[in-house]
């Protein structure tokens, strides 16, 4: 199992970083989403991918999986949503005011002020 999951992590992060370095704004945002998905999965894997029940106590004495990464990931997912929403808003606003989604058109320099 761990080999399959690690492969998914590697592919998610590779694709995410590649998109993050793009010059089209939407692709950057998609890249960021992919990257955070990959990191969330990496966190889960760091807790081990052993056999076990969900971390709900009181259902017999079966071993349960590590709950801590799950708590971390849960908030990370929601924060990731907040980040995505903010990025989308910025993309929307910058397109509305600059009429471009090309980051190399949008860049501002210190001298331009």
């Amino acid at each position: 199992m761990h080999f399959a999951v690690l492969t998914v992590v590697a592919v998610f992060i590779t694709c995410g970083v590649y998109l993050l370095l793009d010059r089209t704004l939407l692709r950057v945002i998609i890249g960021l989403g992919l990257l955070s998905n990959g990191v969330n999965l990496a966190l889960l894997a760091s807790g081990g991918l052993g056999a076990g029940a969900a971390p709900i106590l009181g259902h017999g004495s079966a071993a349960i999986v590590d709950p801590l990464p799950q708590a971390l990931i849960l908030t990370a997912i929601v924060i990731g949503f907040g980040v995505t929403a903010l990025m989308l808003t910025l993309a929307f606003a910058s397109y509305q005011s600059q009429l471009s989604d090309d980051l190399e058109d949008l860049h501002g320099r210190l001298d331009d002020e």
């Binding site: 992060i13 970083v17 990959g38």
Partner: peptide, 14 residues
Amino acid sequence: LAVAAGLGTALLLA
């Protein structure tokens, strides 16, 4: 850079 980041993360994790 992308491949280094992806592969590196997976290896570190392993």
